[in-house]
Nucleic acid binder design. Structure first.
Lengths: 230, 230
DNA sequence: CTCTCGTTACTTGCATACAATATTAAACGA
DNA sequence: TCGTTTAATATTGTATGCAAGTAACGAGAG
């Protein structure tokens, strides 16, 4: 195992740095992401750059204009709202089905994960909690017993990941999150689909709130309101 | 996402024929899709073949086993059930939000689309109805006013497309579908999110039924049942 | 006969070169 | 001056070659 070799694919790491720069505002909205220029900057060929651009586009951070190149899209407040709303609805969906379909073993595993996280909330580090948090939510996806739900949820999670990356949770947030998890676990174990749905929506809503707080600190210009009702 | 490619990309057409062969059972489940062999068969280079395999995998018709190649996955009854269930839930989701958020103009457009389809159901061809049907459902996606919902719905629609392809609807099915559309439109116009949700779930359920009927005619071996409850 | 180690073959990511197509610009004529 | 046609440029798709890493296979040792 030569650690020298890139465990992470070249295209992926390029995509990651591009995402970070876009989110930090270093790469302005509307900028053209030229394949050849990026290839020169990163000192690689066009092939991994193409893959990276595919990823960035799939995350919604840029769009391909046919024969005009890839341009980074504007990160608006509305965009972030959409993201969290969609994640919330998908998680709610998975939670509802999980409440109905999880086996006893799966419920036990979920409860075990939650108990582990309760310990981590008190004494563990933020990164350990975050890792466990991912497993917790993935258990709920899997509990829906529908591979397409799992896929959609994972896709949304990936879309949110660049935003989550900068969000270093403090202890207060972790404890709050853990309390919400308790409600989710109880609803699922009690087979109460409606309650699980509501609890997960609420959970994602509060996650969005804290995320937006941190976000507006670094990029105050991102703020707007739209009226969604007709 | 290639928004509008007039010329069909090589990789896409290769993917389409591969999908068709897989769905017809000409390519058995478990077969290895070798890049170089396919490149030779289609008389192209490995590059478009790679893109084609990416597409086939993204549709769920095959999976990549690391360092073992791409193998076509088994099309089970459970897989199809998952697909339609997920599509139904996503459409229900979009319908619920559309009922709440659509502008008056959007509601009018939806109604207009439905009226056009009612005419087509009586006198138009099946392919014309199918095209209008796609626009109808896309209008509901867009009415949710959330770009991520739209993306997920479109992704699911793409996943279902290889199955839909072989399904040539007869007049009875079209009329039934149109009646269901009437309920959907009414619920959305009346701003009744719950009703829209239910109507769309029902609509997709009946679509799944007719699809499965046709499917079992061509591939009778595909049938199974699983118990989903715990 | 079984286990281990080394070799081979295959998958796969990356680089580079080439070709085709669309957009833009420019030149030209009316 | 305006419209049309043609040339330049950029984006994008494709072809091949190569290198690196992993899995499968087989030979030799115990």
């Amino acid at each position: 195992m030569t650690s020298d070799t890139p465990r992470r694919l070249l295209g992926h790491s390029i995509a990651a740095t591009l995402e970070e720069r876009i989110l930090l505002g270093e790469i302005a909205a509307g900028s053209k992401l030229d394949e050849t220029s990026l290839a020169r900057d990163f000192d690689v060929s066009r092939t991994p750059v193409r893959e990276a651009l595919q990823i960035v586009v799939s995350r919604g951070l840029a769009v391909r204009m046919p024969y005009k190149g890839v341009v980074v899209s504007d990160i608006t407040r509305d965009r972030i709202d959409d993201l969290f709303e969609a994640m919330g609805e998908i998680e709610a969906l998975c939670g509802r089905f999980s409440a109905q379909r999880m086996s006893m073993e799966e419920r036990a595993v979920l409860l075990g994960l939650h108990e582990t996280m309760s310990d981590l909330a008190l004494q563990g580090g933020a990164e350990a909690y975050e890792a466990a948090n991912t497993r917790f939510h993935q258990a709920i996806y899997a509990g829906s017993h529908n591979s397409d739900f799992v896929e959609m949820a994972e896709a949304m999670r990936l879309k949110l990941s660049p935003f989550r990356r900068s969000q270093l949770a403090d202890r207060a947030r972790i404890e709050h999150s853990n309390a919400e998890h308790a409600q989710i676990v109880e609803a699922i174990i009690e087979r109460d689909g409606q309650a699980a749905e509501k609890a997960l929506r609420r959970h994602l809503l509060s996650a969005a709130q804290t995320m937006l707080e941190k976000w507006t600190q670094t990029r105050p210009e991102v703020s707007s309101t739209r009226s969604r009702a007709s």
